[in-house]
């Protein structure tokens, strides 16, 4: 697995799109750091970009790379290594390469423009969330590539999953909350948002930043929840499930698939 990982990682690090990805985030964060002084504003703006783009790029880029790998996968399968090692190797290779791009894109401008950010917990938390989302959505991308031999279908499904989790899901939550307006909804709202990794990342950050609005009654309840050990445990658990869920799908698909 390490061998496959190493090769795909190096291969991707030389890819101009990986470099473009790092450059994009570097420009974004440099612009944000340069233009607005207030710490929270930078982080919120960066968060909006991260939550929308990181899943999208992870899915699409992961799929693009793996569909390409998919073509020479026979060559790998003929070697004395397991399918698990091959696909896990690629999954980790892509995720790590993308994560490294993110890291460079966020850390380098901070280092040059505002070194204090390197120790800003919220900034670091944002990067951690971006990395976790990268792993989750790259995992989904790997699974989709194995599931759909037809690239168009695969990309379609990937885009749909992204659109669903990044945008539509919150709309659905809103509709559910509005429909059930007469009932106590705090727990339901919390549970529903915990089912979506993008929402989890967003809430984790939002509740870290001192948003006074969140300190209204309901906000305080939520804020308290995220502050408790139980909340932290549930969040970690939620991210854990989301991290392993695509891997489980991927491996079970890889085990049964004919190439």
């Amino acid at each position: 697995m390490l061998k496959v990982f190493k090769y795909s990682f190096l291969d991707l690090m030389r890819n101009r799109w990986t470099i473009a990805y790092a450059l994009f985030f570097a420009l974004c964060s440099a612009g944000l750091l340069y233009l607005s002084g207030d710490g929270n504003k930078v982080i919120v703006s960066a968060m909006n970009i991260v939550l929308l783009l990181v899943p999208l790029v992870s899915v699409i880029y992961g799929q693009m790379y793996l569909y390409q790998v998919r073509e020479y996968v026979e060559l790998l399968l003929a070697q004395p290594i397991s399918r698990k090692a091959i696909f896990m190797g690629y999954y980790l290779g892509i995720s790590t390469a993308l994560s490294l791009s993110l890291l460079v894109g966020f850390m380098l401008p901070a280092l040059l423009l505002q070194p204090s950010y390197l120790l800003n917990t919220n900034w670091l938390l944002l990067i951690v969330i971006a990395v976790v989302l990268t792993f989750i959505f790259t995992g989904l991308a790997c699974w989709l590539v194995l599931k759909y031999d037809n690239r168009l279908k695969g990309f379609g499904a990937g885009l749909f999953i992204w659109l669903l989790l990044a945008v539509l899901y919150d709309g659905a939550i809103l509709v559910i909350l509005l429909l059930l307006e007469d009932y106590p909804l705090e727990k339901l709202a919390l549970v529903l948002s915990m089912l979506n990794p993008i929402d989890m990342g967003r809430m984790l950050l939002i509740f870290q930043l001192d948003y006074s609005a969140l300190m209204g009654y309901t906000g305080a309840v939520f804020s308290h929840f995220f502050g408790t050990r139980l909340g932290g445990f549930i969040l970690t658990f939620g991210f854990g499930v989301w991290l392993s869920f695509p891997i489980v799908l991927l491996l079970s698909k890889a085990r049964k698939k004919d190439f």
């Binding site: 705090e186 967003r202 906000g219």
Partner: peptide, 13 residues
């Protein structure tokens, strides 16, 4: 109108 929707703050939707 609906307190709980604060949870969706800053969401893309």
């Amino acid at each position: 109108k609906l307190d709980e929707s604060i949870l969706l703050m800053r969401s893309s939707f």
